[in-house]
Design a protein around this nucleic acid. Structure first.
Lengths: 136, 136
DNA sequence: TCTAACATTAGACCTAGTCTAAATTTGTGG
DNA sequence: CCACAAATTTAGACTAGGTCTAATGTTAGA
């Protein structure tokens, strides 16, 4: 797994330093949507000497190189999403959790015919509640 | 106009103090999407004694009472939108400007049939460029 | 091996936003 | 109209998330 992540970084032109690999493993592997501070805290558990600046630098670098996307879906919460293919998002209003919704689960029409704009990307952002785990 | 805004506040159960009216006029009237800090700066030009806390309190109150929506569409930029009916948004990648897109300009299907979730609201968030004013 | 480029660090700094305690304003019952 | 309680506003302290800087450590490759 470490090998995989290091290779992935290298293939994107990122020198796979120990710190970067540790950070990338935390954020590229899980399917959660962690914030920068959460990544910082997790990485610190294993590498207490890693600095905040390195975490932020690395996350921004991963975004820049297209290995990661940053999302600002709800107020003041910027989180990272390792799934870089087009997809939609649903924010659980009870828990704040962010769920990925596959692109083909929804159909969006007429984006291309919008007057006056060339749209380069889009997604549907939903707010709702999980039906399996309803809050009274 | 001042009368209108004061009435609007009163009708929503908000006591229309001078400060609140001044703030509401800045944010409810324009069709721009100002940030809290921009509202604070504008209001200060006319009422230099207004405090930051009052601006934030009032904006939050307007959101709570449904006269205003807050949007977090791009990284770390929370802005306010006086258009409270359902609509979509397009962020201009050149300028950062946010454009309102009328609900009926787009068609979204299958939101209701999403497995496992009750969706209470949604919108399409687009990124693109204005065709009228292209950047070289 | 040497060195220039690259990466990391600690901590200062910045910005957006919240909180607090005191002061001011306002609506209302008497 | 007055007094007072409730609501509002204020200045500034405080917090969280994030960036920047200058010094230090690491690495690739001639």
């Amino acid at each position: 797994m470490a090998e995989n992540v290091a290779d992935k970084l290298a293939r994107s032109g990122i020198r796979p330093s120990a710190q970067r690999v540790a950070i990338a493993e935390h954020v590229l592997v899980s399917s959660l949507h962690p914030s920068a501070e959460q990544v910082f805290a997790s990485v610190r558990l294993m590498f207490p000497q890693v600095s905040r600046a390195t975490v932020y630098n690395t996350l921004n670098l991963l975004v820049e190189k297209g290995l990661l996307r940053s999302l600002a879906l709800s107020e003041g919460n910027v989180v990272f999403d390792p799934k870089v293919e087009a997809h939609h998002h649903l924010v659980d209003e009870s828990t704040g959790e962010i769920h990925d919704i596959p692109w083909d689960d929804l159909v969006v029409q007429n984006v291309e015919s919008l007057k006056g704009f060339d749209v380069s990307e889009y997604q549907v952002v939903m707010r709702g509640r999980s039906r399996e785990n309803p809050k009274p």
